[in-house]
């Protein structure tokens, strides 16, 4: 099922949460709504789910080119929203048990369906447990099984891994991707974690202040950010202010830390002199914080441990940096200045 959203607006008092937004979600894709908190992404998701009514605009669902009014939507909440007085089995069976008698599956059918789903989320051993007896990651898997029980045509996930710790989050992320590849349900998930969006989704929609700033595949948006906000939001960034070559005033250069390389002796003219301020390594990655001699500003460089060892530099050493890739935006586009 595809979703067609046109000119959607939602206000809460004087605050505009979603502002004349149009978006198409294609059949079978896994779409990430990415943005800082308060950007309207959750409100948008809740409107798609029908949990919130838009002030203006339409949301239409299409199945094989035909518009459908009856649709089944599965919703997964950030804090699981499991029924705490029901066992895992009853939670997952809920959507089937509340169906009108005429279309309700038989007891045995419900039972085997619930077991299949729990097997899929690897929780068939927990069938008689209460949600309170499970960990966060397990609870979210129950919530997912519960949402999938009604065979939704659209699956909506509101920061599904937001309440989990880093390791479980990573694991569940990968697992969600596999699940989606298997089931091919049109899915939209909301996140403020750019890494999560880049890793899991087919397509990313980046939002701020109720509007869409850019949409595209993870590779597209990461490699060709449309504006400073997107560039900044998708990862760490260094800013270089000033006049750049063609002489236009007030331009800002954006450079990712991994696009800054370090040399002990300058191998060209376009090098900046800097002093090593701080060095720390995580695994194979070494992060070098440098202070530019000319401007006194700090920049970050990310190089491999191997390269770092070859350079044989330490705190206080004078080095030269080379900007391998720089993206230039007009400074006035660059609303308030972003911190690194």
């Amino acid at each position: 099922m595809s979703i067609l959203i046109e000119n959607l607006t939602k206000k809460f008092g004087t605050f505009t949460a979603v502002d004349q937004l149009s978006l198409t979600v294609n059949d079978g894709e896994l779409l990430a709504l990415l943005g800082p908190s308060g950007c309207g992404k959750t409100t948008l998701l809740r409107m798609i789910a029908g949990l919130e009514n838009p002030d203006q605009g339409t949301i239409k669902f299409h199945e094989n080119e035909n518009q459908v009014t009856e649709n089944r939507i599965g919703f997964v909440f950030q804090h699981y929203a499991l029924f705490r007085h029901m066992t895992v089995f009853e939670n997952v069976a809920f959507g089937l048990k509340v169906k009108p008698r005429s279309i309700r599956p038989s007891k045995e059918a419900i039972r085997s369906k619930v077991f299949d789903l729990l097997k899929m989320v690897q929780l068939d051993w927990a069938v008689n447990r209460l949600p309170s007896e499970l960990s966060g990651g397990q609870r979210q898997r129950v919530a997912l099984a519960r949402a999938l029980a009604i065979e939704p045509k659209v699956l909506l996930l509101d920061e599904p891994f937001g309440a989990l710790d880093a390791k479980v989050r990573k694991e569940l992320r990968r697992w969600l991707r596999h699940l989606h590849d298997e089931l091919k349900i049109t899915s939209v998930f909301v996140t403020h974690d750019q890494e999560e969006a880049l890793e899991v989704s087919d397509r990313i929609v980046i939002m701020n202040q109720g509007k869409i700033l850019q949409q595209g595949t993870p590779e597209e948006v990461y490699a060709h950010p449309a504006n400073p906000f997107v560039f900044n939001f998708l990862g760490n960034v260094n800013l270089f202010h000033g006049r750049i070559e063609n002489g236009e005033a007030n331009q800002v250069g954006f450079v990712r830390p991994h696009d800054i390389s370090i040399e002990v002796t300058p191998n060209g003219l376009d090098r900046f002199e800097a002093v090593v301020d701080r060095v720390f390594s995580i695994g194979n990655l070494t992060r070098v914080e440098l202070k530019l001699t000319e401007s006194g500003r700090f920049v970050d460089s990310e190089i491999s441990k191997e390269t770092f060892d070859k350079l044989q530099i330490k705190t206080g050493d004078k080095v030269f940096i080379k900007l391998n890739k720089i993206k230039v935006f007009q400074a006035d586009q660059n609303q308030p200045e972003y911190s690194i």
Partner: peptide, 8 residues
């Protein structure tokens, strides 16, 4: 909301 979204 979860109960409603599940069709209750």
């Amino acid at each position: 909301e979860a109960a409603i979204s599940l069709g209750a």
